[in-house]
């Protein structure tokens, strides 16, 4: 993660610095607290959790809750663990991310290098689409998915996530390509390069960073989605977030907190790993999502 550091001209005394570090460390602990609670308690037996101190490390580490969360715990009606739902999420995320990113790249290319009358209106409408509350599309989307025969299927979810990801992917590539020298594109055209040749040979090879930013952004959003998953999935297409919620909030049986925590970490793991490996690009996506223009 690199927001470039600079020398801050304001000097502060030694006591002040001690205070600053104390506060910073306090907040490090605050942000880590829920993660610590989840990890530590996912390694405890249920008896130990009932008996005591949620903040303490496990007395004797057990991996049973993890095994249960992955493959044997009761989710909904079946005792399958979260594994099938984890796979559903992967099957949903991969195509949705790839298709929406690819279309976003093409759209950004057209909107910046082949601009036409009305291009700004087209972009404005696609940008505004990023911010709608998705409740507004639930009812008609349910009908359309039914008509297309995609209700409750993974391809249906892929379609939904692709469509509602287009606004952001187009935004990312449009802003990136706006800064790409148009002269290079014109020169290639004069040399006889076609629309697609320019795209594949000139723009794509220099788009590495924005592809990474967009893919991470889409991956995080689609993986973490709950609303569409809860609305449009059926038993064999339920994504992990919905399955986790079903596991934790089911009203029957003993509450296996340790299994819930292990399941929560499983659900968070893919996006956490992506964040830790390439946080810099993640932050860039967040910033681009907040500042437009």
């Amino acid at each position: 993660m690199s927001i470039p550091s600079q020398d801050n001209a304001i000097q502060s005394g030694r006591l002040m610095r001690a205070l600053i570090y104390t506060l910073l460390i306090f907040f490090v602990l605050y942000y880590l607290l829920p993660l610590w609670v989840m990890v530590s308690n996912s390694l405890k037996t249920l008896d130990e959790i009932h008996g005591g101190d949620m903040l303490a490390p496990p007395r004797a580490i057990t991996f049973e809750p993890w095994k249960a969360a992955w493959s044997t715990t009761q989710v909904g009606v079946e005792a399958t663990g979260l594994r099938p739902y984890f796979l559903n999420s992967i099957l949903m995320v991969v195509p949705a991310v790839l298709i929406s990113t690819f279309l976003g790249a093409l759209n950004g290319y057209v909107l910046t290098k082949w601009s036409f009358r009305g291009a700004n209106l087209v972009f404005g409408l696609m940008l505004l689409a990023c911010f709608i509350p998705f409740q507004i599309v639930l009812i008609p989307m349910a009908r359309i998915l039914g008509m297309l025969g995609l209700a409750g299927t993974i391809p249906g979810l892929v379609m939904v996530h692709t469509v509602y990801g287009l606004g952001f992917t187009t935004l990312f590539f449009r802003n990136y390509y706006a800064a790409f020298p148009t002269e290079l594109v014109r020169a290639a055209q004069i040399d006889g390069a076609s629309f697609f040749q320019v795209f594949w040979r000139i723009l794509v090879p220099s788009s590495g960073p924005i592809f990474v930013v967009t893919i991470i952004w889409q991956f995080t959003n689609v993986w973490n989605d709950f609303l569409f998953g809860a609305s449009f999935s059926s038993y064999d297409s339920t994504p992990i977030t919905v399955a986790l919620n079903n596991l934790v909030n089911s009203s029957t049986g003993v509450k296996e907190y340790n299994v819930h925590f292990a399941g929560a970490i499983l659900a968070a793991l893919p996006t956490l790993v992506v964040y830790i490996v390439s946080g810099r690009y993640f932050v860039r996506g967040l910033m681009a999502g907040a500042v437009k223009g």
Binding site: T220, T241, L272
Partner: peptide, 12 residues
């Protein structure tokens, strides 16, 4: 550390 919660789902 301050930013990692943004990477995880609200359900988690």
């Amino acid at each position: 550390v301050y930013l990692y919660p943004m990477a995880i789902s609200f359900i988690v």
